[in-house]
Amino acid sequence: MGVKGISGMAVTGTLGDATAARDSSNLQKEAVKFSELVKEMQRNTAMGLAEKNGNTVSGVSSSQIAKNHRLNGDYTQGFYGAFTSEADKKAAPKGLAANVKGSNGKTPVIDKTSDLYAQSMELENYMVKMMLSSMRNTIQHTSLAGENNEYARKMYDDMMYDNMAEAMTKNSSFGIADQIYIELSGQRK
């Protein structure tokens, strides 16, 4: 029984070594494929930017790769592309900005499909997050789930409040983004 066990161990060890070598070889092949794919994507992006700008591009930055001003791994939806209809291109201000008049006495027009408005929404979203965070800090939490889940609870709460702030920004007419858009677009001079 002892000899069988030793030879069985040797066979198992040899098979294990062969499996590990095969897995290592497959992993290296996949790594090479992945790096080639990344290089091809960078070349395509650089060529597209060069054609768009009419010049040569020596490198590609992460801001040029990011689509719709979002970082890889963002779990929020963001505000780019949230408004797409024709009516959104000539919207009237809401909320705080509803009473604003331009230098000519007329109510300004807001293009909700523009990048400036999306950035204005991001800033309003940040302000709403700060408000919700201040409100959240007034809540006392019990330790019914135990102290082991404290980190997970905080992470979940952060994600929940981020999504809540985004929904509030999109759906309730605070008008902060409209006010910011009007000021930055120069319609209130």
Rank of each mutant, 00 (worst) to 15 (best):
Q187T: 02
K4N: 15
T76Y: 11
K94Y: 04
S143W: 01
K129M: 13
A167G: 08
D178C: 07
L27C: 07
M168Y: 11
S35C: 05
M130E: 12
A145F: 11
Y117C: 03
T113N: 06
G73R: 04
V100L: 14
A91W: 08
M127L: 15
D178N: 10
G146A: 06
D162F: 05
T19Y: 09
N149C: 09
K4E: 14
Y75C: 02
T107P: 07
G5W: 06
G48I: 00
F79K: 09
T12R: 13
F174W: 15
N99V: 08
G54W: 05
T12S: 15
N72Y: 11
Q179D: 01
T84D: 08
L71M: 10
E30Y: 08
M164W: 06
A97Y: 06
S172H: 09
S185E: 08
T84M: 07
V128N: 05
L144W: 01
A145Y: 07
V128K: 01
D178F: 04
L96H: 04
M155A: 12
M1A: 14
S7N: 11
Y75F: 11
S133E: 10
N55T: 11
I180S: 06
K170W: 03
D157Y: 07
R153Y: 05
D111C: 11
K154L: 02
G13W: 02
K39N: 14
M135H: 05
S114V: 10
G102C: 04
A165M: 01
S63F: 03
V38F: 04
Q140C: 02
S103P: 04
I6G: 02
T45Y: 00
S24I: 07
A167Q: 15
M155W: 02
D111L: 09
G16E: 05
E124D: 05
D74F: 03
L15D: 10
K33N: 13
N148A: 15
Q179L: 15
A145C: 06
T76R: 11
K90V: 12
D158E: 10
E166G: 10
G78F: 08
D17R: 08
E150P: 00
G2F: 07
G2K: 12
S61Q: 02
R70A: 14
S85L: 08
A50L: 01
A46F: 00
Q42M: 04
D178L: 06
S85K: 10
M168S: 05
V60Q: 00
L27Y: 12
L184N: 11
L27R: 12
N55D: 04
M164G: 01
Q119W: 08
N171Y: 12
E150V: 09
D115E: 15
M168G: 09
H141G: 02
L15N: 12
P93Y: 10
Q42K: 03
R136F: 05
L132P: 05
Y161H: 07
L37Y: 10
G8T: 07
D178V: 06
G95C: 08
N125R: 06
E122W: 01
F83V: 00
N149L: 15
M1W: 06
K89D: 03
A10Y: 03
M155H: 03
L49G: 02
R22K: 13
N72A: 15
R43Q: 10
D178W: 04
R43H: 06
I182A: 07
K33D: 10
Y80V: 15
T56I: 11
N171H: 14
V109K: 05
V3P: 01
